[in-house]
């Protein structure tokens, strides 16, 4: 069972939000330039994961790696 507790600090969340939005915009705007469907889907998945982390304030990789940027010190 995944324990969904906040493990992202505000800065971490904001960076992930920006990355998610930037990637989605990039895929939409430069759809033809990217060309490869696999790459397009990969970027979207990656963006989506960052978006989820942004919304929940929780990163599954951090959770597995036992990292918590909320904690100080």
């Amino acid at each position: 069972m995944l324990n969904i507790k906040h493990n992202l600090c505000a800065i971490d969340r904001i960076i992930r939000g920006i990355i998610a939005v930037a990637l989605i915009v990039y895929v939409v705007v430069f759809f033809d330039q990217i060309g490869d469907m696999l790459l397009q889907i990969s970027i979207l998945i990656f963006a989506l994961m960052n978006l989820i982390s942004f919304v929940l304030g929780w990163c599954p990789v951090y959770n597995i790696a036992n990292i918590n940027t909320c904690k100080k010190g």
Binding site: I34, G35, L39, S42, I43, F46
Partner: peptide, 9 residues
């Protein structure tokens, strides 16, 4: 283009 994206991912 593709290399950049692939490398990033």
């Amino acid at each position: 283009n593709r290399l950049f994206i692939t490398a990033f991912l």
